[in-house]
């Protein structure tokens, strides 16, 4: 029996923001359809990993490698990384002034369809699927006709990220604190959507501090990031330990990790 090739392979990734080195050699593999939870204290580099993989210009990769389905992710411009199947939800999704949400998402969706050689969606077909997805996620339909994220509450912004995730159906989604700002129903919607997309083969890296969500997501792996490195890898029990004792680890435990 052969092990499937990892969808994402990150090797010894070093990333600097300005003069400060944030990631100091991160390595991890993510299999298709699997889910890894990324935990770590504030400033440990969780969001930096997402932004660096997405190609944010302020996050400078100074060393290492990242392959998505065997393709060198770091050699691609940001939009081609997205078209290759990488979706990164933003911790604080920005406003896109004046651009209607439905137009923004449809344009993005059609750009991805074009890259996959699929026909574009017309406005009517798109609206029907967007309305259905918005309804499932508890996002008011009126927000489809409003400028992207302008005047949205924190929870609405996060639901809007989920809406885009649901419609774009990426190969790999990195969700950065997607649960912050969401109410109980919103968290339930996250779990439902993640389960549905995993069943279709989408892999996930979920950054979260909340055990309730992590337990519901049933992760394949839990990674603890510390000072820019993966300091511990385990299963759900690691998340439970962190929830119980915090991020400060006894030196012996930390030294035991590779």
């Amino acid at each position: 029996m052969t092990t499937p090739s990892p969808l994402l392979q990150v090797r010894d990734l070093h990333v600097a923001v300005g003069e400060r080195t944030v990631l100091r050699g991160v390595s991890c593999d993510v299999q298709p359809g699997s889910l890894a939870v990324l935990m770590g204290a504030n400033g440990s580099g969780k969001s930096t990993l997402g932004m660096a993989l997405a190609g944010h210009p302020r996050y400078r990769v100074t060393g290492g490698q990242a392959l998505l389905a065997g393709q060198d992710l770091l050699a691609l411009p940001a939009h081609e990384r997205a078209r290759a199947g990488l979706f990164v939800s933003f911790q604080a999704p920005p406003d896109v002034p004046g651009v209607k949400n439905n137009l923004f998402i449809r344009t993005a969706l059609n750009a991805v369809h074009e890259a996959r050689g699929q026909p574009p969606l017309d406005a009517f077909d798109f609206l029907a699927s967007a309305r259905q997805a918005a309804g499932t996620l508890g996002l008011p339909e009126t927000l489809l006709a409003r400028p992207v994220n302008e005047g949205f509450s924190g929870g609405e912004r996060k639901r809007n990220e989920l809406l885009q995730l649901a419609l774009l159906q990426p190969r790999l989604a990195l969700l950065d604190e997607i649960d912050s700002g969401l109410d109980v129903d919103g968290v339930r919607a996250v779990v439902g959507l993640v389960q549905r997309l995993r069943a279709q083969g989408t892999a996930f890296i979920v950054v979260s501090h909340y055990l309730t969500l992590i337990e519901q997501l049933q992760p394949d792996a839990v990674l603890r990031l510390d000072q820019g490195r993966v300091a511990e890898t385990g299963g759900l029990e690691l998340a439970r330990t962190i929830a119980r004792t915090g991020f400060a680890r006894p030196a012996a435990v930390a030294e035991a990790q590779p």
Binding site: A54, G55, H56, P57, P77, A78, H79, R81, A82, R83, F87, V88, F90, P93, P94, D95, V96, P97, G98, V99, K100, L103, F104, I105, T107, A108, L109, A111, V112, A115, P147, Q164, L168
Partner: peptide, 22 residues
């Protein structure tokens, strides 16, 4: 906003056009 659009798959020209029009 430009990076957000790029992360959703829009190339630079399309992202700029969309945001400028918005």
């Amino acid at each position: 906003a430009l990076f957000y659009a790029a992360q959703r798959g829009l190339d630079d020209a399309r992202a700029r056009a969309l945001i400028t029009e918005g």
